[in-house]
Design a protein around this nucleic acid. Sequence first.
DNA 1: TTTACCCTACCTGTCAGATGGTAGGGTCAT
DNA 2: ATGACCCTACCATCTGACAGGTAGGGTAAA
Lengths: 187, 187
Amino acid sequence: MSSTSRESVLSAARRTAQAHGYGGLNFRDLADEVGIKAASIYHHFPSKADLGAAVTRRYWEDTAANLDAMLAETPDPVRCLRRYPDVFRRSLENGNRMCLCSFMAAEYDDLPEAVKKEVQTFADVNVAWLSKVLSAATVVNSGESEPRARAIFAAVAGAQLLARSRSDISLFDALIDSYRVAGLLPV
Amino acid sequence: MSSTSRESVLSAARRTAQAHGYGGLNFRDLADEVGIKAASIYHHFPSKADLGAAVTRRYWEDTAANLDAMLAETPDPVRCLRRYPDVFRRSLENGNRMCLCSFMAAEYDDLPEAVKKEVQTFADVNVAWLSKVLSAATVVNSGESEPRARAIFAAVAGAQLLARSRSDISLFDALIDSYRVAGLLPV
DNA sequence: TTTACCCTACCTGTCAGATGGTAGGGTCAT
DNA sequence: ATGACCCTACCATCTGACAGGTAGGGTAAA
């Protein structure tokens, strides 16, 4: 029971930030959602910046775990790579939300330093995983896997952003498909 | 002399929104920047939503004009296509800012309806232009130019987002380069 | 040409609501 | 009796919005 509030705040904040960004987070609404009072959140997180950093850190930790689980489940690197866009697709499925860190990349100028750091780590985690799987798949010349990983990450994030602005998941699917046709993603 | 304030508000709002989004716009700061009082902005724009829509509309109008000018200046479609990412690069050069409509795509849930409409038009303008130039360049099978146009638009927007989150223009350049290597953009 | 009227552009003053944050106190398990 | 957890009650600040006023310029009937 004890640490449940903290966890609830964390996951409510995550959901909210995926729809409204860091700026859209506020203690009162968060508290209402969790069922405690706004001031009580300060017991778990000394400031909004701390909450933001904790949420973002948890976000990339979860993502890293998901990606590793996916690779364990689908060891064939080409098939696994094929599933990568699903990670971003799921946010859209979940109420037309988007990647927390893409949103925060937009809000970059207004982010506390600690939050910026976690946002960058999210990108690092994705690029590292993609780079590893690309290498294993040998779809790309060795030494080219990291630039390609970055390109895939950026392009998929862009596809999510555009699809969100139309509330249209099929647009996301079409974009990923076009990336494959064009050769950015392996077929 | 008369309509100068309105224009000043419009361009100040554009600069601000490219760094802080629609949510980052506020009448007082805008008024300070322009040199009038906050309430006076209501003389030109009846509400924040109206201001937001006007700014966004002006933004895609300017972009459309820029793209057309570029095509007039560089009629060779392949060479012109090569210059397309520069449109997005310039925002980064200008104080690590980003595309107004990419930012607003993230803020989509909190946007007034009139603003959403203009944001979508911005995407339409870009895709239409890219599609036209892709067709002329015959780098893509006919019928494939529009999906490819969308893919390029989304990918370039994603590259800008990632580069912004690192305040690193050379990362943007590297991403565009990777897109070319991968075959998404013509070399 | 004077009087009456209207328009544009901006101002002062104010308000209600939201926001991040603080002080200090209560409850309950260990 | 100590600390984890949560509360009530505030506060300062910011925000979009509005009411009402003013200064200057144009228009037009008398």
